[in-house]
Simulated scan of single mutants.
Amino acid sequence: MRVQMKTLIVAVSLAFTASTLAVTAAEAQQRRERVLVCKSTKKSRNKGTVIGGLTGGTLGAAVAGNGAKTEGAILGGVVGAVAGNQIAKKNSKKNCHYEYRYR
């Protein structure tokens, strides 16, 4: 009779432990996280690069003097392209929002 009682206690303890672990594992899988979601910035950055390069090249050629219009256009185009890319990158970050997702 004692052996049966010990067996019953061990079985109940194991069943309780297994059910507790199953509930804990299920809760861990349902954890919500706050995630920052942004739209792709590639199109807007490319557009900013092209517009900046064209504008910079035009202004560089207009400002350059003494027959250095080509060099001014090239330098202005490069500076304008970099500036346009960075400005578009900064402005496109405003299209981000937070979402809650399950892990």
Score class of each variant (00 low, 15 high):
residue 81 A to N: 06
residue 84 G to M: 04
residue 100 Y to L: 14
residue 52 G to I: 03
residue 70 T to C: 04
residue 10 V to D: 05
residue 59 L to D: 10
residue 48 G to D: 04
residue 47 K to A: 14
residue 82 V to I: 14
residue 4 Q to K: 14
residue 9 I to R: 13
residue 36 L to C: 02
residue 60 G to Q: 08
residue 31 R to T: 05
residue 30 Q to W: 01
residue 54 L to D: 02
residue 90 K to L: 08
residue 73 A to K: 01
residue 4 Q to T: 06
residue 28 A to C: 02
residue 73 A to V: 01
residue 98 Y to E: 02
residue 94 K to R: 11
residue 94 K to G: 09
residue 85 N to P: 00
residue 30 Q to M: 12
residue 64 A to L: 01
residue 87 I to Q: 04
residue 25 A to T: 09
residue 14 L to N: 15
residue 4 Q to I: 08
residue 18 A to I: 09
residue 35 V to F: 01
residue 14 L to D: 13
residue 27 E to W: 07
residue 82 V to K: 00
residue 33 E to Y: 13
residue 69 K to P: 00
residue 70 T to D: 12
residue 21 L to A: 11
residue 59 L to M: 13
residue 11 A to C: 10
residue 92 S to D: 11
residue 1 M to P: 09
residue 67 G to C: 03
residue 73 A to Q: 05
residue 96 C to N: 06
residue 20 T to W: 07
residue 59 L to A: 07
residue 5 M to A: 15
residue 82 V to R: 00
residue 97 H to N: 03
residue 19 S to C: 08
residue 17 T to V: 12
residue 84 G to S: 07
residue 31 R to W: 05
residue 15 A to F: 10
residue 78 V to M: 11
residue 91 N to S: 11
residue 52 G to Q: 05
residue 80 G to Y: 03
residue 68 A to D: 15
residue 35 V to N: 01
residue 15 A to R: 02
residue 40 S to T: 08
residue 8 L to P: 02
residue 74 I to C: 09
residue 75 L to I: 07
residue 15 A to V: 04
residue 73 A to C: 06
residue 62 A to D: 01
residue 44 S to A: 13
residue 84 G to P: 10
residue 69 K to C: 01
residue 16 F to I: 00
residue 89 K to H: 09
residue 72 G to V: 02
residue 59 L to Y: 05
residue 69 K to H: 12
residue 1 M to G: 13
residue 27 E to N: 04
residue 93 K to G: 13
residue 42 K to D: 05
residue 52 G to P: 05
residue 49 T to N: 12
residue 38 C to V: 05
residue 23 V to L: 13
residue 66 N to V: 12
residue 8 L to T: 08
residue 94 K to Q: 11
residue 25 A to Y: 10
residue 41 T to S: 15
residue 5 M to L: 13
residue 41 T to F: 12
residue 6 K to P: 01
residue 37 V to D: 08
residue 71 E to N: 08
residue 78 V to C: 05
residue 45 R to K: 15
residue 32 R to F: 10
residue 9 I to H: 09
residue 41 T to V: 10
residue 76 G to S: 05
residue 84 G to A: 02
residue 57 G to L: 03
residue 59 L to C: 09
residue 11 A to I: 04
residue 13 S to C: 09
residue 50 V to P: 04
residue 93 K to I: 02
residue 33 E to Q: 14
residue 70 T to H: 00
residue 58 T to N: 12
residue 3 V to S: 10
residue 76 G to P: 01
residue 33 E to V: 08
residue 25 A to S: 13
residue 7 T to N: 13
residue 20 T to V: 10
residue 68 A to P: 02
residue 19 S to K: 08
residue 33 E to R: 14
residue 43 K to S: 08
residue 85 N to L: 10
